[in-house]
Design a protein around this nucleic acid. Structure first.
Lengths: 238, 238
DNA sequence: AGTGTGAAACTTGTCGTACAAGTTGGCCAG
DNA sequence: CTGGCCAACTTGTACGACAAGTTTCACACT
């Protein structure tokens, strides 16, 4: 890696330390600097990017947290092996358009239909009791969106738990209440009558799922879950 | 949040900036400082932890990259909405027993069956070409486990890509080659004849999935994918 | 010629000082 | 009451200095 000048833009659009971190990240991602290679010393980076040592150090701190380098006093910063896979991250803030929500529902169709079928096969009496509690909790949330959102999430989580497979549980957790409740929060601002009708419909769909799980009907549970999510989808995209 | 003294250990086990970042992270994770709250100013943090401003700034840079705070010149650092959820993390090292692998396959049944059905509905000619390439690549891996494992993963990933839904792609990526190939590596050490028979069977199953996607047969793609994974499952648990 | 030791040069970690750029709140004038 | 100005506050950058750890080179000894 050469020591060519590569000054950072000082247009104020981002802090210099962000800029340097992005530059260095690009080198690593491009493979210009490879796993095991040492980054240039701070003094060389200062020259290269035309910034103070403070900026370099902050930038390197950023790379450390990002898992891109590790640094030893007296030795330098070494590029880490790039992770072959990264965690699955789901951020509610990414859901901006109807298409975004529909994509999420399509994804949940795969997850939750399968989880419900397994729940019907594997649920224990305790888990069934928890499902009933969650149903009751959702019903108690009528007219109270924040309670309903939390109860909605809890019910879906309980279904995943009844599948007795940690992957389904972990994934539901990674989605969180906001994304599970996503289609419903869209209706939070609608008029009260339409909201009550919608709420009752969702409650009925929930009840259908739990009933199938209760009678150990895997196909029924899968169908009820798909109906539930497909209905949510259809409300968004008729 | 008080300004009580809370000096950082200087035992050399970690850099001070790491120590401060961990302390601040703990406050945020514990909910002591809540989303939207402002962290104390750098000067106050210097006093609190008994370190220089450089250390504080580097620590805060760490928190920024970790997505825990965002910082504005003149205003301060504000705690971001704490993810109510944590990323979904899948580690091949966790797969120690047959039950573990079966649980993974059950999970993948939900994901990949749905993804294949969507791929059949949505695939583009380019994506279909990529599927064919991946098929060829897998075939070229006969007798070469490391190539076959990578090609297996690539094929499954291409199917997820053809679903044109980033959630499926991201999740497959989070699983990575090792977990996607998991049932097959179990056979890596078996005798060669059995391995060749098994390889040919897997290749046929792959081909069936791609054929259904080619003819835009969502039900067929779903069935072929379920067959593929269910066969893998059955090989482990007759 | 080979090996070991010590010192200098190099590299990262921390501290302190100073100035620039942006924000906030209080006070005063209209 | 509202708006403007200024001082205090807050973050961003730069610089110099010293501490702690690593590496390299030169010299001395065997």
């Amino acid at each position: 890696m050469t020591s060519l000048e590569d000054p950072i833009d000082r247009d104020g659009s981002a802090s210099l330390s962000h800029g340097v971190a992005d530059r260095l990240t690009a080198l690593i991602v491009a493979g210009t600097v490879r796993p095991g290679d040492k980054l240039p010393a701070e003094s060389a980076l200062m020259e290269r990017y035309g910034v103070s040592r403070t900026v370099i150090r902050e930038a390197v701190s950023r790379l450390q947290v990002a898992g891109l380098v590790e640094t030893y006093r007296g030795k330098g910063s070494f590029v880490l092996t790039r992770p072959a896979q990264s965690p699955f991250v789901a951020d509610p803030g990414e859901l901006r358009t109807t298409d975004d929500v529909v994509a999420l529902i399509d994804f949940r169709l795969g997850i939750e239909v399968e989880a419900a079928a397994l729940a019907a096969q594997r649920r224990t009496p305790t888990q069934l009791r928890r499902l009933d509690e969650a149903l009751g909790h959702f019903s108690a949330g009528a007219g109270k969106p924040s309670i309903a959102i939390e109860a909605d999430y809890t019910l879906h989580l309980r279904i995943a738990e009844a599948a007795n497979n940690r992957y389904f549980v972990d994934l539901l957790r990674s989605l969180g209440p906001t994304m599970i409740a996503m289609p419903h929060t869209r209706l939070a601002a609608a008029d009260e009558t339409a909201q009550a009708v919608h709420f009752a419909r969702v409650a009925q769909e929930h009840s259908d799922i739990v009933a199938a799980i209760r009678r150990r009907d895997a196909l029924g549970a899968a169908a009820a879950t798909r109906t539930h999510l497909a209905n949510s989808r259809a409300r968004l995209r008729p």
